[in-house]
């Protein structure tokens, strides 16, 4: 930031897009104030509603386009849970589906030119990750009691190694929500910030073609990342769920 203030006319503020502002004027963000982020969460809800509720309204045997997409999303998450966590995991299908739909729509809506990237905020991704972490741990102890601790006892390893592995396993277990949330939030934030940087350079006539090209390429990459990160976030959730359901190695 120091460079730009030294005489260049470039005003690069890649982080400005992430500012949370009250939606209806004012400066103070109370816990209940509707903000621009609230608006885009609402739009995400609307999109989920349009796709999954309105889209499946026809209940058609031969589906319409929207219903096909809704069915693909349904089948995608359903099969993911079935494959990784088994039949028992399907009990948690609505929860996982909620997370997936919210993340995938927040990610993609953030890519709209006027959009706001809800999932580029660690408060959001962190809350989601902690939600997953807490519920998965609770499910593990509720299902297996202290047997859940077998998760940290790697029986496949030689006995002398197991205490060390247990220590590593415990640390990695508690790092999960951090990596889980930073991975998603960081990806979203970085992608949008890089686009913003390229966009700022577009103001300079000489390099603007290059800059526009850069924006296009970054946009394509971000679109990919939006879906991939939603997928990764969901599949990790399911993997953690599997650990809770089947802690034995």
């Amino acid at each position: 930031m120091a460079a730009e203030q030294q005489g260049s006319e470039l005003a690069i503020h890649p982080m400005h897009q992430f500012l949370i502002k009250p939606l209806f004027g004012g400066d103070v963000v109370h816990w209940y104030t509707p903000t621009n982020q609230t608006l885009w969460m609402g739009i995400a809800i609307l999109c989920v509603f349009l796709l999954l509720v309105v889209g499946s309204k026809g209940r058609a045997i031969i589906p319409s386009r929207a219903q096909s997409v809704a069915e693909v999303a349904y089948g995608f998450v359903y099969k993911m849970i079935e494959d990784i966590a088994g039949k028992e995991g399907l009990k948690f299908f609505p929860y996982v589906m909620t997370i997936f739909m919210f993340v995938v729509f927040s990610n993609t809506l953030g890519l709209l030119p006027i959009g706001f990237a809800t999932t580029a905020h660690f408060a959001v991704t962190g809350t989601l990750a902690i939600l997953v972490f807490v519920s998965v741990t609770a499910i593990g102890f509720a299902r297996h009691g202290l047997g859940f601790l077998q998760l940290f006892w790697v029986t496949a390893a030689p006995l002398p190694l197991r205490p060390f592995l247990a220590l590593i396993e415990v640390i990695s277990y508690f790092v999960r929500p951090v990596s889980h949330s930073i991975r998603l939030g960081g990806n979203m934030m970085a992608g949008h910030a890089v686009i913003e940087v390229f966009a700022a350079f577009a103001a300079v006539a000489l390099i603007s073609p290059l800059s526009v090209l850069g924006i296009t390429a970054m946009y394509a990459l971000d679109l990919l990342a939006a879906f991939v990160q939603a997928y990764v976030f969901t599949i990790l959730t399911v993997v953690y769920l599997k650990d809770a359901l089947h802690p034995k190695h």
Partner: peptide, 25 residues
């Protein structure tokens, strides 16, 4: 603020999915 609205958003989506969309699909 973020956590509050996120919680509301998640609850709305969950209710929509669990009550209507998922059983239907």
């Amino acid at each position: 603020n973020q956590i509050f609205w996120l919680a509301i958003a998640l609850i709305i989506i969950y209710l929509m999915l669990n009550r209507v969309a998922l059983p239907r699909i």
